[in-house]
Design a protein around this nucleic acid. Structure first.
Lengths: 123, 123
DNA sequence: TCCTCTATCTGACTTGAGCATATAATTGCC
DNA sequence: GGCAATTATATGCTCAAGTCAGATAGAGGA
């Protein structure tokens, strides 16, 4: 049951496929470059390499647009902005994730119910 | 932004990695064979091939145990039961998914906030 | 006989993520 | 000047999970 790299702790496998909506929401709060998106989404501990790849595929899909910003100090930054399609997609994700949250609610209450009755069965 | 197979509709990519907890919960409600798990989880529209593979890896990980049931009519059924490790893992998933639900709540309320102020910006 | 339903399983492919690592510009420090 | 740290973007390799198509097989009905 354990992922070997994490012995002796047993941790559920990560839920995948949520990077896009997190990024869309981060950019909905205003244009930003990759490094800043990373800090806006710091609670999710995104993999930097993965993020930049995600950003490029999202741009290919027309969800975001980028331009170089060489004004500030440090290396050039590629600044991303949400397109209209990106806003629509974010909307679609919101609908989708509301449903997911409801599924999780049902999961959790079903689990609590089972755990309540489980004492008789397992103890 | 569209997955080609779904043109002209734009649909967010599926969130992955949740098959295990769904299966664990389904089996927490009582032993079952694959085909019945599929119907218990019909709302999630699992891929049958994928499910049977998942079941086998879960058995290898010690989360579930199986035995053949040839009693009823039709082809033999492999009946799965949760092990103690499976119950523990389900517990871990519950903790994990409660956190995920809270993240989704934060996502959704942040999105609603943005959408509220967005009328001024976009319209 | 042939079709359908139940039931399990395999092969080939796609995708998202994890991990390590490369590259480069700028800043601060000695 | 030399050098490390910080900021910033990017690639290669690998694995896990999911998707899609189809194989196999028993049992029952028209």
């Amino acid at each position: 049951m354990c992922r070997e790299r994490e012995h002796p702790y047993c941790v559920p496998g990560r839920v995948r496929g949520l990077a896009q909506p997190w990024v869309l929401l981060a950019l909905a709060q205003g244009p930003a470059h990759g490094y800043e998106i990373l800090s806006r989404l710091s609670e999710h501990e995104l993999d930097p390499g993965g993020l930049y790849r995600t950003l490029r595929t999202m741009e290919e899909e027309g969800l975001i647009r980028s331009s170089w910003d060489t004004s500030g100090s440090g290396p050039a930054r590629r600044v991303y902005t949400l397109t209209d399609a990106g806003w629509d997609y974010l909307q679609a994700w919101a609908v989708h994730l509301r449903r997911l949250r409801d599924e999780l609610d049902r999961f959790l209450s079903a689990y609590e119910t089972l755990k309540g009755g489980e004492k008789d069965v397992r103890a």
